[in-house]
């Protein structure tokens, strides 16, 4: 006699149950995300590309210095010369949307986890699950709930990119020296005052590392998300691979790398700027 726990049947049942009974709920989420993505994308495409480049270069200059600014300028010129701006705009819109959602959920969860050990104990295995479960396993249910297109891509990306934001927010707050929180309490802070005036500012380098990781993971999902019709640079790579066009595949891949480096350097410098004062 064979003993078997029918996890597969349970999963199927839950997915089907949710899909049938919460159709309108998923529709409305879908609508919100869709408008986010197309909003960001539209913004990037409506504004003349030269202005977008100027803004990114200016931010890079201010935050990360001249080197990164020059690299950004060169990188964008390369993107434009490869004629990949439209796809880049879509990818950036996906990354932005996913990151905003992941942070909007992840940072508060990280704060919650830092404030109580039981919460942390509950959240931690869920994060392990989110990070190690093969992406395709939840890419498909996402498609079942939201159809194909950018929406399931964003959902899957959020699931994949959120854990570091939670983990590093939690870690950052827990690493605030006890004497700082003690001083804060001794002067009569409420828990909220302590959080906003002492813990979050001191945890900022760690939180920014989480933001950085979140953005990088979102970007790394860009290629995979193209398989479910998210579009963007991933689609360039995916199409090239399926047609064995190595050259244009390389172009798409290079574009992803350029965007990744620019975003990484800029967000890393935000974290570093505060570390100087902390140490």
């Amino acid at each position: 006699m064979e003993f078997r726990i029918p996890i597969d049947q349970w999963a199927d049942f839950i997915i089907n149950y949710l899909r049938i009974n919460y159709r309108s709920f998923f529709r409305s989420i879908s609508g919100v995300i869709e408008s986010f993505v197309s909003g960001f994308e539209g913004l990037l495409l409506v504004v003349p590309v030269i202005i977008v480049v100027a803004i990114v270069v200016a931010i890079a200059w201010k935050m990360a210095g001249r080197g990164v600014a020059l690299f950004s300028l060169a990188g964008f010129l390369l993107l434009l010369s490869m004629n990949l701006w439209d796809q880049t705009a879509r990818t950036l819109a996906l990354v932005l949307t996913s990151t905003v959602i992941a942070l909007a959920i992840g940072i508060p969860l990280g704060i919650l986890a830092s404030r109580s050990d039981p919460t942390e104990r509950i959240i931690r295995p869920i994060l392990d699950l989110m990070q190690t479960m093969p992406i395709f396993v939840y890419l498909l249910p996402a498609v079942m709930f939201f159809g194909i297109g950018p929406v399931p891509a964003v959902i899957a990306t959020v699931v994949f990119a959120m854990p570091p934001a939670i983990r590093l927010t939690n870690l950052g707050i827990r690493q605030v020296p006890a004497e700082m929180t003690e001083a804060s309490i001794a002067f009569g802070s409420t828990p909220m005052q302590m959080l906003t005036k002492v813990q979050l500012p001191l945890a900022l380098p760690s939180i920014m590392a989480g933001v950085n990781q979140c953005i990088m993971l979102s970007l790394s999902m860009a290629v995979i998300a193209s398989m479910i019709g998210a579009g963007g640079l991933g689609a360039v790579v995916y199409r090239a691979i399926t047609r064995l066009e190595i050259g244009s595949g390389f172009e798409g891949g290079l574009a992803v790398v350029i965007i990744a480096i620019i975003l990484d350097r800029i967000t890393q410098s935000v974290g570093k700027g505060t570390t100087r004062k902390v140490n």
Binding site: E179, A183, P201, L202, K277, V278
Partner: peptide, 15 residues
């Protein structure tokens, strides 16, 4: 308002 405290390792806020 009534009790001020001074700490051994200063505990100043670095930020």
């Amino acid at each position: 308002k009534k009790i001020g405290m001074v700490f051994q390792r200063f505990a100043l806020f670095p930020h």
